Amino acid sequence: MKTAHYYASRSQKFLVVGVDGRQTEERYEVGSKSEARKLAKELSAKPWNF
C-alpha cells in the first residue's frame, strides 16, 4: 500500500511517500497540510499521519 507522511518544522514542510511500511526517496516540498492532502490524492497515496 502506498502511503504519504507529512513532516513540518519551522523552516520546512514536506511530504514523503512510503510503500508497504517503508519510506522511499520521494520527497515533495509543500506549503500546508491541505496542499499535502491534494498531492497525496494525486499520487494515489493514503494520508498516513495527517
Rank of each mutant, 00 (worst) to 15 (best):
T24M: 03
Y6W: 13
S32K: 02
E25W: 10
A36E: 03
R37E: 08
S9L: 09
A4Q: 03
L43P: 03
F14W: 14
S34T: 12
N49W: 03
S11F: 15
K41I: 11
P47R: 01
T3F: 09
R10H: 12
L43I: 01
E25C: 09
T24I: 01
E29W: 04
Y7F: 14
W48Q: 09
H5M: 02
K41A: 15
S32G: 11
F50H: 11
L43E: 00
V17K: 09
A45L: 01
F14N: 05
Y7N: 10
F14A: 08
S44V: 05
V19F: 04
Y28M: 04
G21C: 00
E26S: 04
D20L: 05
S11D: 12
K38N: 13
G21H: 00
Y6P: 06
L43W: 04
K46W: 03
R27V: 13
F50S: 02
A4G: 03
A36W: 03
S44G: 05
S44E: 14
S32M: 02
A36I: 04
A40N: 12
E26A: 10
E42C: 08
K46S: 09
Y28I: 12
A45G: 01
K13T: 06
L43T: 01
D20Q: 07
H5I: 15
E29V: 13
A36D: 04
T3C: 07
V19A: 05
H5F: 15
S11W: 09
A36V: 07
E35I: 11
E29G: 03
K41D: 09
Y7E: 12
A8R: 15
Y28A: 06
V17N: 11
Y6R: 05
D20C: 05
R27C: 10
S9Q: 08
Q23D: 07
K38T: 15
N49D: 08
M1N: 10
A36G: 09
S44L: 12
R10D: 13
K38W: 07
V16L: 10
V30T: 02
Q12V: 12
A8W: 02
R27F: 02
R37S: 09
E35G: 08
R22I: 09
E42P: 00
S9R: 06
R37K: 14
S32V: 06
K33R: 10
T3N: 08
F50I: 14
E26M: 04
L39D: 00
R22T: 11
V16R: 15
A36Y: 10
Y6E: 04
E25H: 12
Y6Q: 03
R10W: 08
Q12P: 06
S9F: 01
A45D: 02
H5L: 14
V30I: 08
K46R: 04
L15M: 06
R37G: 05
K41T: 10
S34C: 06
S11N: 10
K2M: 11
S32R: 08
E26P: 05
V30M: 03
S9D: 15
P47Y: 01
T3L: 13
S44P: 01
H5T: 10
V19D: 05
R27E: 04
F14C: 02
F14L: 12
K38S: 12
R10C: 03
Q23W: 07
S11L: 14
Q12K: 14
R27Y: 00
H5S: 13
F50A: 02
S32H: 07
G31M: 07
A8Q: 15
R22S: 14
A45H: 03
K38F: 13
M1A: 05
K2G: 00
A4P: 11
Y28T: 00
S11Q: 12
T24R: 05
A40H: 07
S32P: 06
A45F: 00
